[in-house]
């Protein structure tokens, strides 16, 4: 595979651009974060995110091209996140990508954000099929089976809160600053013991549920406070994280064994979580299944992962056109045409 792709990602609160060669080599990976601005609101405000993207977009793309020492005529295609995400935020990346592609007569490729997260692993080592990807982020908790490049089958997903969402909500209960995930992870590692919180197993399915756990944390705090006592935040953090990590690990191992996969990938913002990485890596090593966890910079939202995914789409002949729209609820569809259903 030989191609050079400029990728753009603006699905949430990071304005990102990257140049990727042959689907596995990062020539540049620029991310402008809005976290200092969004921190004021305790979460991402869509209108503010969109405004920041307009301020940053050309600066970020220019930096990505300059760092890669690339001029537009060197490129084979422009890739951009089409969805899912915040629609107003997606539209900035998409319209910048379309204008850039039009200006230089380049084809344009619309990439699914979650497919991008999974393909972050291709920047670390070649993907081995069939594989299983655990995608955990603020908006997603999904187990995805891939028979080959471009083939996606969601075999399990959350029925309520995404794992990252649960982290954010529990962080708020513990009065931690936004984003709360890293704080909970750190506190959990500092605690000697954790509070015993329930695990939602949802037997006979690979689906997840985290809203019960979140309620259990809230009730625990409330009950103690009623008795005039206060919680030990580290112990609550550990108890919560242990529950999330055990469920995610157990279901991932079960699916990996049942489907006989050759590789397990963890992807998405929450995969930066140390507790989850350690647990998955230990359990998969015991089972003798290769495990790939991309470096933290490729787990949080970035454009390199979009470029990696687009490289394979480009080879497969997948193209979008100038009428591409932002799809906030875009479904993860396969682009390989040999795809047939697992069951």
């Amino acid at each position: 595979m030989e191609n050079l792709i400029l990728a753009i990602e603006t699905s949430c609160d990071e304005t990102a651009a990257s140049v990727i060669r042959n689907g596995n080599e990062i020539l540049s990976n620029v991310v402008a974060s809005q976290i200092d601005s969004q921190k004021r609101f305790g979460g991402v405000v869509p209108e503010i995110a969109s405004r920041h993207h307009v301020e940053q977009i050309t600066v970020v793309i220019e930096e990505a091209l300059e760092k890669a020492s690339i001029v537009p005529s060197d490129l084979d295609a422009v890739a951009v996140t089409e969805g899912p995400g915040l629609v107003g935020a997606l539209l900035i990346g998409i319209n910048a990508a379309k204008a850039f592609a039009f200006a230089h007569g380049l084809p344009i490729i619309g990439v699914h954000h979650i497919a991008g997260h999974i393909y972050a692993s291709a920047l670390v080592e070649p993907m081995k099929f069939p594989l299983l990807a655990l995608v955990v982020s603020g908006g997603h908790t999904e187990l995805i089976y891939m028979k080959e490049h471009g083939s996606f089958e969601v075999i399990g997903e959350t029925r309520d809160d995404a794992a990252g969402e649960a982290y954010d909500k529990v962080a708020r209960v513990l009065n931690l600053p936004y984003p709360g995930g890293p704080h909970i992870d750190r506190m959990a590692h500092e605690a000697k013991k954790g509070v015993d919180f329930p695990r939602a197993w949802l037997e006979d399915t690979y689906d997840f549920s985290f809203s019960g756990l979140k309620s259990a944390v809230i009730n625990y705090k409330h009950n103690l406070e009623q008795r005039g006592q206060s919680i030990v935040p580290e112990e609550v953090a550990k108890g919560f994280q242990d529950s999330v990590v055990e469920v995610l690990t157990t279901k991932t191992i079960k699916a990996a064994k049942e489907l006989g996969v050759k590789q397990v990938i963890v992807a998405g913002g929450v995969s930066a979580n140390r507790g989850l990485r350690e647990s998955l890596s230990k359990a998969l090593e015991q089972e003798g299944i290769p495990f790939t966890a991309p470096p933290l910079s490729l787990c949080t939202d970035n454009a390199a992962m979009i470029g990696a995914c687009a490289a394979y789409m480009f080879e497969a002949g997948v193209r979008s056109d100038l009428s591409m729209n932002g799809l906030p609820g875009k479904e993860l569809k396969s682009w390989s045409n040999t795809d047939d259903k697992l069951r």
């Binding site: 050309t58 539209l91 900035i92 319209n95 850039f100």
Partner: peptide, 19 residues
């Protein structure tokens, strides 16, 4: 309209910058 403005400005900015 905020979204309308951003679409026109993003396209104009990108064309202007890259050309």
């Amino acid at each position: 309209s905020y979204t309308g403005l951003r679409i026109g400005v993003t396209i104009a900015k990108t064309l202007s910058w890259t050309l």
